[in-house]
Design a protein around this nucleic acid. Structure first.
Lengths: 341, 341
DNA sequence: TATTAGCACTCGTTAGAGAAGAGTGCTAAC
DNA sequence: GTTAGCACTCTTCTCTAACGAGTGCTAATA
């Protein structure tokens, strides 16, 4: 554990570095308002902090810079979650303002969040696999094509185009839709396939002339993997960070973001509450130069998706934590208030 | 009009610059295979071309670089549309391969196009305002909420969540849906609102108890402006271009892309066929450093959307033109074959 | 004993000078 | 009409020197 003075110095260095992104030396530090120590004294403290690996030098005679361990200490011991402010209310207003679809809500949240922080917001959209089927419909477009529409209890609408087998009749399609609705409504999306294979298949065999023609199609329609879509806001914010003034780094960053699969894997977590990973604490190579802060939003205790902020390790942790927690409860709240229930 | 020799020199310089992005001098030029002229002669020709403003120097003793006027001349007079190649077949295969929804088709096309060219592909998705209504449905989610679903003849599905007025009954909702379907099917999306206001309104008045409660809701649901969504592929390709090795330029580029409204306006065109705008020929400031090549895809002669490629003025025009034309016909073809008809 | 002042030393940054190299325009010869 | 030659220009690279911010250590001070 650190002493008061060491804590003060560490905090001041980190706070300064968070805003300036430049190493700070003992002399500059001694001039700060709430530090009444001589440069020499500060140098001693800094040397101690460096020995504890909370600070590092960029070269032998440079000022100090926080290490990842330093940030970790800062996050764990120094930060007191700051109180709500006008930014929070702004966010509230925007999110609660409209009757939004889930998708819009999530996209909007990503944008607001990135705007307020100047970092990059990444939100993993709701996993609809836990939602239940509300209705299934098939709309015929032409002799050979139709679109199948699935509505979940959360108001999510999924649709898929498919080819109709030759010679299928309208009445037969209707019959099938009836069977499906009769048997599948209320079933969680993730179980649809299984249910279809088991009981519905035999039913279709009994009642439909061309069941073998249509079954495969309807099966593939229900075979949808919606484990959450990715919403990104403020990608270009990262370029305004001085540590990413290098084309190669920016390029890496963007190609990482474009790799949706990897990102989804990264964000999928069953961890509850706020989680901060700093630099190399991240297991994925691509973000070892970033800090990632994640939290989740829920409905009925079910984890729906993840909200994350991606920024340099030199991040405004205090602000970010506050905002993220607020957004999480905000979203959970909007969902709870039952608009989609 | 240029003489043969001048044309050869101009073409060679541009071709070289397109691949290297570096100014080329007379000596290097004289060593090229199909040029059997001494450096001194070439210098004279280059001086002439510079006087015609087809070439410029970056400084008084540098090699030459094509000017925008030079590219324009090159595009207008030098390029012969090259024949189809394996790349074209690759594209064909990918696009014709699957039964895709319009949206997927467009997104995929943007990705393939950017992959093949290493530029940034921007596609303006189909304008669904011309499509006609195939079916309208309302699925009730809870006592106070429902989702309205519109299906167009193109297989496009639009849905919107809305609050139900208090005390509305199931039978009444059903009645309304029947009226809507009865009166609006086959109507172009862009006319829906008008039709609703005129004949449908009176019908609802006659048959529905709470028509004044529900009318506003259904009106706002039909009030949807789908003039095309933007699909972008290969954004990060631009960073691999040596002329954009500058953070500020990249930042500008990305903020431009993020401004969806502006981009849509830029791409919306009634111009038929291929159109090339080079550098300052563009009217929008944000892309005065780029070249923009656009073409469109159609269905039944109706322009649906725009396909565009964004790259440096130093662009592989020949290749790009070929690919873009091919994709345009490809998409028009897929659409014509009537999967969505 | 804890703090501070002083000083020698380190290392990154910046500016300038010079050399190398690529390219040009012009002139004169072929 | 074409080419060789040459003086000249401008960029790029490298090297050096000066500067300054910051450090660690030692000795003086409260």
């Amino acid at each position: 554990m650190l002493g008061d003075r060491e804590l003060l110095i560490l905090q001041t260095i980190i706070d300064d570095f968070i805003t300036t992104a430049k190493p700070i030396g003992s002399r500059a530090l001694s001039k700060k308002e709430d530090i009444n120590l001589s440069a020499a004294t500060i140098r001693n403290v800094m040397a101690d902090l460096e020995e504890m690996e909370l600070l590092v030098k960029t070269h032998s005679s440079s000022g100090r810079v926080p290490s990842e361990k330093g940030y970790r200490y800062y996050v764990d011991h120094v930060i007191s979650p700051s109180l709500k402010e006008k930014e929070l209310h702004l966010m509230e207003d925007i999110i609660q303002g409209n009757m939004l679809e889930m998708e819009q809500l999530v996209q909007l949240s990503a944008e607001v969040l990135s705007e307020l922080t100047n970092y990059t917001a990444v939100i993993l959209g709701p996993n609809e696999m836990n939602a239940t089927l509300k209705q299934i419909q098939i709309v015929r477009l032409s002799a050979q094509s139709a679109v199948a529409i699935l509505v979940t209890n959360t108001g999510h609408v999924e649709h898929r185009l498919f080819n109709l087998p030759f010679g299928i009749e309208v009445t037969e399609l209707e019959k099938m839709v009836n069977i499906l609705n009769d048997r599948l409504i209320g079933i969680p999306i993730m179980d649809l396939q299984y249910r279809l294979q088991s009981e519905v298949y035999t039913l279709m065999q009994q009642h439909l002339k061309h069941h073998e023609l249509i079954y495969d199609h309807i099966f593939s329609v229900l075979q949808y993997e919606n484990t959450g879509k990715l919403y990104v806001g403020g990608q270009s914010n990262m370029m305004r960070q001085p540590e990413f003034n290098d084309i190669d780094k920016i390029y890496q960053f963007y190609t990482m973001l474009e790799n949706e699969e990897e990102m989804i894997k990264l964000l999928k977590t069953d961890h509850d509450g706020l989680k901060i990973t700093i630099g190399n604490e991240n297991k994925v190579d691509a973000i070892k130069q970033f800090s990632l802060i994640t939290t989740s939003y829920k409905m009925d205790g079910n984890q729906l998706g993840t909200i994350a902020l991606l920024g340099p390790t030199r991040m405004e942790y205090r602000k970010v934590i506050t905002l993220l927690q607020a957004l999480s409860t905000e979203m959970t709240d909007v969902l709870f208030r039952g608009k989609w229930k």
